[in-house]
Design a protein around this nucleic acid. Structure first.
Length: 217
DNA sequence: CTCCCGATAT
DNA sequence: ATATCAGGAG
């Protein structure tokens, strides 16, 4: 377990962390799930889709299909119909079926507990893998979704647009023990205040630390 | 880089 | 009408 060197975090970064920690002390994924496999599927479905929409879709889905084996066997059109409202349904259906097959063939039907294994699964990139690692296994990871990417740039925690570069920039300035929760706090913050389209800058509790071009008065 | 793609807010 | 939503594959 490597610890972050104090001199790598400037005072502003630390203040941003502290304020977010105080504002959102208890965070967890907003996706509903009852097993690691369900969270994996829900997270794949969440690509370019709100968690609310995913949560409206998954109960009926998992009522019919609740194991990797069941997803392997189901016809593509049936699965597409079940997940249609989450968008990108043809790709997601194929990804989930191939992912389920890979789980059965290579991981004994169990969701693997490492980033390297998870990203070998079809439809699973670093963002999805880090969501599952954090929520299910408690393994630290920065989750770079659209909110985290946008806010990290607005707060000048990174100047990159490539999600992987943003992930490593954040890992360098955030203590490893907070990687998961910090990601979730940025996501909460992004939904309520630092929105993509019309950010609530006048009411924002980080306004005094933000020099973004997107800032509104 | 492009494509996938429905639901919602503005 | 258009941008955006817990992205990933080819």
């Amino acid at each position: 377990m490597k610890s972050i060197k104090p001199d790598k975090q400037d005072a502003r970064t630390r203040e941003i962390r502290m304020i977010l920690n105080a504002r959102y002390p208890d965070v967890k994924t907003q996706l509903d799930y009852k097993s690691p496999f369900q969270l994996l599927v829900a997270t794949i479905l969440s690509a370019q889709c709100t968690d609310r929409q995913v949560n409206a879709t998954t109960p009926k889905l998992f009522e019919k299909l609740n194991t990797p084996e069941a997803f392997v066997d189901v016809p593509n059109e049936t699965l597409e119909a079940l997940i249609r409202s989450t968008g990108f349904y043809k790709n997601k259906s194929r990804h989930i079926k191939n992912c389920a097959a890979a789980l059965v063939e290579r991981f004994g039907g169990q969701v693997p507990a490492s980033l390297d294994d998870l990203v070998t699964l079809p439809g699973v990139g670093r963002k999805t893998a880090n969501v599952v690692l954090g929520a299910v296994f408690g393994i630290p990871g920065i989750v770079v979704d659209t909110h985290v990417a946008r806010i990290s740039r607005r707060l000048d925690l990174t100047r990159h647009t490539d999600p992987v570069k943003i992930e490593f920039d954040l890992m360098a300035v955030i203590p490893e023990t907070e990687w998961n929760d910090f990601s979730l706090r940025l996501i909460y913050f992004g939904r309520l205040f630092c929105k993509a389209r019309k950010p609530e800058c006048p009411d924002c509790f980080l306004n005094h630390l933000c020099y973004s071009e997107d800032k509104r008065t």
